[in-house]
């Protein structure tokens, strides 16, 4: 995969977030560099949910942090509402960043264990003095807690450790909504929750985004979850975008990037029929991001790979309506 390319980006005026050629590298031992994100471009329209999917190490969480400028990417342009974040002063950046709220995977760890729920939800607003008077602030806090399915009267004075994982995640959402963001970035927020709680959260997120007119970046390793909540999906592999697709493409007969294909085939089907185990081919490991393969990064695991894939990096091109695929072998 490989893909760089921007053909999938929409008109600049129509999007809330526009990210071009995002590049993130981390220093590693011995002066080497981890190529975590290498030239990723995407955009998010107002009210739209874009899902990011890929295996661990594909750079999807790094993209989220780079968009927030936590820390700033090594290169690339991040435009939020026509403001280029990279050009802002530190103070202006902090102010602008409030419009994007990030929620993390581990709900317990991301909430300060020594603060009560009411303080956790209110603290962001207090920092920015955006709450108006005390009474109105409290009113809004209660409203949001009830909105995310918590009984505000019960949890008001509780500490995070007195809540379940799902409840903590609800507090995180209420806390994010408190800042009246236009973009919510959810980084694997369902990964540590039980199935029954996951579905509650998915339904809550869908309702919330409709009520608050939120756009979302939804990062998850679970293709089923991403399909359920997203309008568009970015399939990432080793710091690059393999495929960008409208979610409806998953419900029709079509071709996909070989990596998307591999992911789709790996998701377990809920079936009573015995699956014949096949272990042809040794297990393939993800190549090291310290030294990613030349050309198409997926070529080392790709059944279609040829010499061309090693030499030339494929670009994202619209191969099917609503499907941008970075592959030389799909026409």
């Amino acid at each position: 995969m490989a893909g760089t390319g921007k053909t999938h980006l929409r008109e600049a005026g129509s999007t809330l977030l526009r990210v071009e050629d995002l590049q993130v590298e981390f220093p590693a031992k011995g002066g080497r560099r981890v190529h975590a994100v290498s030239g990723v471009s995407f955009d998010v329209a107002p009210g739209e949910t874009v899902g990011f999917v890929g295996e661990s190490g594909c750079g999807k969480s790094t993209v989220a942090r780079a968009v927030m400028h936590l820390p700033a990417p090594n290169s690339g342009v991040v435009n939020l509402d026509d403001t280029e974040l990279g050009t802002l002063s530190a103070k202006r950046l902090r102010e602008t960043r409030v419009a994007m709220q990030l929620i993390f995977q581990d709900p317990m760890a991301s909430l300060n264990p020594r603060r009560k729920v009411k303080d956790l939800v209110q603290e962001g607003v207090e920092i920015w003095h955006r709450g108006g008077d005390r009474h109105a602030l409290e009113e809004r806090t209660r409203e949001l807690l009830d909105d995310v399915g918590l009984d505000s009267a019960t949890v008001w004075n509780r500490y995070p450790h007195e809540l379940s994982g799902g409840q903590c995640q609800r507090v995180s959402i209420a806390r994010a909504l408190m800042m009246r963001p236009s973009l919510l970035i959810c980084d694997e927020i369902l990964a540590s929750l039980d199935v029954s709680v996951q579905s509650q959260m998915l339904n809550l997120l869908k309702r919330t985004r409709a009520e608050h007119g939120l756009a979302m970046m939804f990062i998850s390793h679970d293709l089923g979850v991403v399909k359920n909540i997203s309008d568009r999906i970015l399939v990432m592999y080793l710091g690059k975008v393999a495929e960008v697709l409208e979610v409806d493409a998953l419900d029709r007969e079509t071709v996909h990037h070989p990596y998307t294909q591999l992911l789709l085939a790996s998701v377990p089907r809920v079936t009573g029929e015995r699956i014949k185990p096949s272990v042809d081919g040794a297990a393939q490991d993800l190549p090291s991001p310290l030294n990613p393969p030349s050309g198409c990064r997926f070529r080392t695991r790709c059944p279609l790979a040829t010499d061309r894939c090693a030499q030339e990096e494929p670009q994202l091109e619209e191969k099917r309506p609503g499907q941008f695929i970075a592959c030389h072998h799909i026409s």
Binding site: L202, N203, G224, K227, N228, I229, D251, R269
Partner: peptide
């Protein structure tokens, strides 16, 4: 409750209330 890949996109999930 589980969003299976086989389900159509954006399907409403029947969640289990409570815990």
């Amino acid at each position: 409750a589980k969003p299976h890949l086989e389900n159509p996109a954006r399907a409403e999930l029947v969640s289990i209330p409570g815990r």
